[in-house]
Structure formats: structure tokens, C-alpha cells
Design a protein around this nucleic acid. Structure first.
Lengths: 209, 209
DNA sequence: CAGGTTCTCCCACAAATGAGGTATTGATAT
DNA sequence: ATATCAATACCTCATTTGTGGGAGAACCTG
């Protein structure tokens, strides 16, 4: 049976040609196409699509909220973002919202078809530049250099992010706890934070270390 | 000019056939192939490969340490992991170590060639199941349910992970700071931690919330 | 209605933390 | 040789936190 698809895309011409392309392939069935995703939840509930193609920039509700609606309503439906945006912020918001794939609009129809098949297969199709950004997000920022931390400060900070107290850190590093406190003071200054909790949050959120 | 490749793979037969395949394609040049990555750094320094194919399970130094060596020595060299492992731990260790791609050994030669071209092009080739795991890692665990946190506790925890003190959290939520402290007590119990710092670390590392 | 849960607030005390200092040592750079 | 920096260590003081209690109001559920 054909793969059932729903399209959310506010550009009428693009949406029409997408729908046409998919329909005529014989492999896909377009169960609906919409120029906004206000009703994304109920549409998903009714048509139970295998795949949703979701634009980001749409009038009213954004595609990011759209993904959330679809995934909350029916997690089995795979959502592929289909957009011109490749900035980190929108990208990672979509991924956190539950997107199963992320294609740039410059993707060729052939690759789009491949991507739809892949996502139905449980994969996670991404345009190469997107995959690059995603992988890069794992690579520890060498921004520790940006904050000019010394080796010892990095040692201390590393243990701090495990939730250790000054005393424990001291015994781990085999130095006095007062020394650890001195290091912590300097670390807070360099990271522009006011306490250990903020420091931990900053380090873990920005992948410093 | 051809793409210059170095292979680290301890299975002699596989390594030989890989090298043969790549060489005979005309598109690639195999600058060297090794059954261990002890000398990965100096090899990289000398041969300046465009791409390194890196197995994980090798005698002596693991491929994960291999990636680190290569990327520290020459960040421009793209490293593609080539392995049978698809467990999260090894995967994310490799990504953090700086891997530019991650292929399973079941990948067909054609796809391998594509992947090498893609990584030279600045992309990040991944086997579909790997891409899936990577994307999934962004999706916030609904394991908050696992810890049985109430809505209010989630509110408090969310603000805690910004590094806020009990007082600040209290004023944000418009309740007494003593109430916040009560919530924190309960949160620590549910998360099985002993202090706020540990709680923040746990939440941010495990993507709870 | 009784019992449970959630959210709210308060008290008290020991321990930890943040913030301000000062100071010594060894290595490195000028 | 002199100055700077990193790492070490100690002191003080106000504040915050962890932990132990108790307790009332709102709400659901059986």
C-alpha cells in the first residue's frame, strides 16, 4: 500500500507541485495539503498519515509548533521538516520538538523521495549540511579556551559538573578544599557566573569541556 | 586530484579488500592501511589524508582514541567511523571525539563511496539507523514521568537548571522561598540525588525536561 | 466521607557556599 | 633579575543550602 503523506506548506505553487510530484509517482498518496498548521493535530488524528512534510515559516502557527502537535497527537507519524532555514536555533528546536528528518528545499525530488522512504523505514534523513551541524553539536566546544581556563580549573570544573562539593573535589584532586574554593572563585569570574549551579548549567548547556 | 585515504582496520582480509576497492575505483588513493591505530597521530601528520576510515574494535588502542589522535593532529582530516557497533555509548563517544561520519560495516561499497565523497564535501554521512539514534538523542526524554515529578516540581526544576537560587525561583513562581525549598527536597528524593548541583547535572546530562 | 496527593508555608540547625581578603612557591617570560 | 602567572593554602563573614521536622488548604478518588 502507498505511503500516506500530508503536506503543510504555505507557498501555494510549491505545495501544489510537491503534491503533484508525489501523487504521480504512484508510490505515495497525498492525503491532504494545507497552507497552515493550525489544525495539524486534528488533521493528523483523522488522516493518520505515515509521513508529514512540514514547512517552518508559515502564517499563524510555525512549523515548529506544528511538529509538536503532530508528534503529540500521533508519535508514529514521521515528520520531515522541509525548509530553507539552516540556522542552528530553528534546527535544534525542530529536533527537540520531535522531527524525524530535516531537508532543505534545495533537495532534488529524487532525494526527497529517498528521504520519505528512509523515514518510513525508521531512518532519519537529513540534508548533508544539516547532518554536519547535528554532528558538530556533539563536538565539545573548544570554547574553554574562550574562557581562558587553566588546566587545573578545567579539572575542578569537570568534577563540579558531577555535582561534587568542594570537599569531595579536594580529595579527588588531593589538594586542600580551600584551594578548590579559590579555583572555583576564579572559574566563576571567568565564566561570568555567580555560583556553582550556574556554572554547571553553562558548562553542560554550551558543551564547554 | 584523487581523495587521499588512510584505513585503520584490524581485520586483514576486510582491510585488504577495502583498500583494493578504493584503489581500483580511480577516484581514491589509499595512502596507507594499518591494523592498529597506535601511530595514528604521526601517520596523520606525515600522510595528511583527506579521509580516514576508522574501525572501533582494534587491539591496543581503540578507534575512539584513534579519532581523537587524528583530529587533534589534523582537524581538516575527515574521520569516518566504520564499525559493526551501533550501541549509543560507543556512538556518542566517537561523535564527541570528533568523528565526521559513522557507517556500519553492512554499508554497501557504493554507499561507502558516496559517504566518502559526502564527507570530503563537508557533509556528515551516517547509516540510517545511526542517524536515527543521533536525532533521537535530541528528543527530550519523557523519563520525567519515570521520576514521577509533579508539574510544580518540574517548574521548580526547570528554573533550578538555570542556576537560580531558591529565592529567585520563589519570586519567579510567586510563592514563598520555603515552599521552593520543600519542592527541592522532594525533587532530590525523586531523582535520587543529594543536592541541587547533582540534580542539575542529572537533568542536563540525561535530557530530562 | 475518609484518605491520598499536591501545593503551600514555617521553624531550626549544621554544613556548604560566595565573596572579600592575603600569602607562598615554582615556573615562565621579559 | 624581575615580573607575571598558576597553583597552592588559609581566614572571615554573610548567605544559601540540605535536612529534619510540622501543618494547613485544595482537590480527587474510592
Amino acid at each position: 500500500m502507498p505511503i500516506r503523506i500530508i503536506i503543510f506548506e504555505d507557498n501555494d505553487r510549491l505545495r501544489d507541485s510537491l503534491a503533484y510530484l508525489l501523487k504521480t509517482s504512484g508510490e505515495f498518496e497525498v492525503a491532504g495539503d494545507y497552507n497552515n498548521c493550525k489544525e495539524a493535530a486534528s488533521i493528523t488524528r483523522v488522516y493518520k498519515p505515515d509521513v508529514v512534510l512540514m514547512d517552518i515559516d508559515m502564517p499563524g502557527e510555525s512549523g515548529i509548533q506544528g511538529v509538536r502537535q503532530v508528534k503529540e497527537t500521533r508519535p508514529e507519524t514521521a515528520v520531515i521538516m522541509y525548509t530553507v532555514f539552516e540556522d542552528n536555533e530553528k534546527l535544534f528546536e525542530c529536533l527537540c520538538a520531535g522531527a524525524n528528518g530535516y531537508l532543505l528545499k534545495k533537495t532534488s525530488p529524487d532525494n526527497l523521495f529517498d528521504a520519505i522512504r528512509e523515514v518510513v523505514d525508521g531512518g532519519a534523513p537529513m540534508s548533508p549540511s544539516i547532518a554536519k551541524k547535528v554532528l558538530s553539536s556533539f563536538q565539545t566546544n573548544k570554547t574553554n579556551n574562550k574562557y581562558d581556563l587553566t588546566q587545573r580549573e578545567i579539572d575542578v570544573l569537570q568534577l563540579l559538573t558531577k555535582g561534587y562539593s568542594a570537599k569531595i573535589i579536594a580529595s579527588e584532586l588531593d589538594i586542600a578544599s580551600e584551594t578548590v574554593r579559590t579555583h572555583l572563585k576564579n572559574i566563576y569570574q571567568k565564566l561570568h557566573v555567580n555560583c556553582g549551579k550556574e556554572a554547571i548549567a553553562k558548562v553542560l548547556k554550551e558543551h564547554i569541556l
